[in-house]
Simulated assay, not measured.
Amino acid sequence: MTVSLALKALVIWVVILMLAMANGFLREFVLMPRLGTPAALVFSGLLLSALILGIAYLSLPWLKPGSPIQYWLVGFGWLALTLVFEFSFGLWQGKSWPVMLEAYSFKGGNLWPVVLAVTAVAPYLAAKLRGWL
């Protein structure tokens, strides 16, 4: 992966991070009070997955990965950045490992594992949807 591609992928991931934070606020302060926790978690997970795929789709012409492997590298790079951010932020907040790892289950409607999978495959899937692969 070139430095230019890596920097562009990082910029796009920051956009995804901002959308994920906005999605979290929407879930906590709007959806949960109105829909309850399980429905809010499902809706929020599906919405964030769609946003990530949409950002990947819209950003591909700017990102311009040169080969199929680069689509996978970008996606798994986004996944790695997300995991590092999540665990670092959780540890900074003083959360225990069991509490943080609970988010990686499907308990109570949680779709976080699906969001992570979509994050990893989004660039490749977006290229398929564009007919580039």
Score class of each variant (00 low, 15 high):
W112R: 12
A56E: 03
L51W: 03
S49A: 09
S49P: 00
W72A: 14
F85I: 10
V99W: 10
K95C: 02
F87P: 05
T82D: 12
N110R: 13
V84K: 04
F85D: 14
L79W: 10
V118F: 00
G54T: 02
V99A: 15
W92F: 14
T119Q: 09
V118S: 01
W112G: 03
V115E: 01
V115F: 01
P65T: 13
A120T: 01
W78T: 06
F43A: 09
V74F: 12
S67P: 11
P65F: 13
G90L: 07
L58N: 04
L53S: 06
A80H: 08
L41V: 04
G90Q: 10
L91K: 14
A117E: 02
L79I: 03
S59N: 04
L91D: 08
A50K: 05
P65H: 14
S96C: 10
E102D: 15
A40I: 00
S49V: 02
L83H: 06
F76K: 05
G90T: 05
G66N: 12
L46K: 01
E86Y: 09
A120K: 03
F106N: 07
A56C: 06
A80T: 12
L116F: 09
F89I: 11
V114L: 07
G108I: 09
F89M: 15
L48P: 00
L53R: 04
V114P: 01
F85G: 08
K64T: 15
F85A: 11
Y71Q: 03
P38D: 03
E86A: 09
L41C: 00
K64S: 15
T82Y: 14
G66V: 09
A80K: 06
F87Y: 07
P61W: 10
A39E: 08
E102Y: 14
I55H: 00
G54C: 01
A40Y: 00
F89W: 14
M100Y: 13
V42P: 02
P98L: 05
K107F: 12
W72P: 07
Y104F: 15
L53C: 00
L58W: 11
T119M: 12
S59L: 03
L60P: 08
I55C: 06
G90R: 10
A120V: 03
Q93C: 06
W62E: 06
E102C: 11
F106Q: 08
A50C: 05
L79M: 08
E86W: 06
S59K: 04
G90W: 11
G109S: 04
K107Y: 11
E102N: 15
L41N: 11
L41E: 11
S49C: 00
L47W: 01
L79D: 08
G77S: 09
K107H: 12
Y71N: 07
G45E: 00
Q70A: 13
F85V: 10
S96A: 15
W92Q: 12
A50S: 04
G77H: 07
L58Q: 08
A103Q: 14
V99H: 13
W92T: 12
F43Y: 09
T119R: 02
G94D: 13
V118E: 05
F85K: 09
T82C: 12
F89G: 07
E102S: 15
F87C: 07
A40K: 01
F87I: 01
Y57S: 05
L47G: 05
P113D: 02
G94Q: 11
M100F: 15
V118R: 05
K95F: 10
P98I: 04
K95I: 03
K107E: 13
L73V: 14
W62L: 13
Y57H: 07
G45P: 02
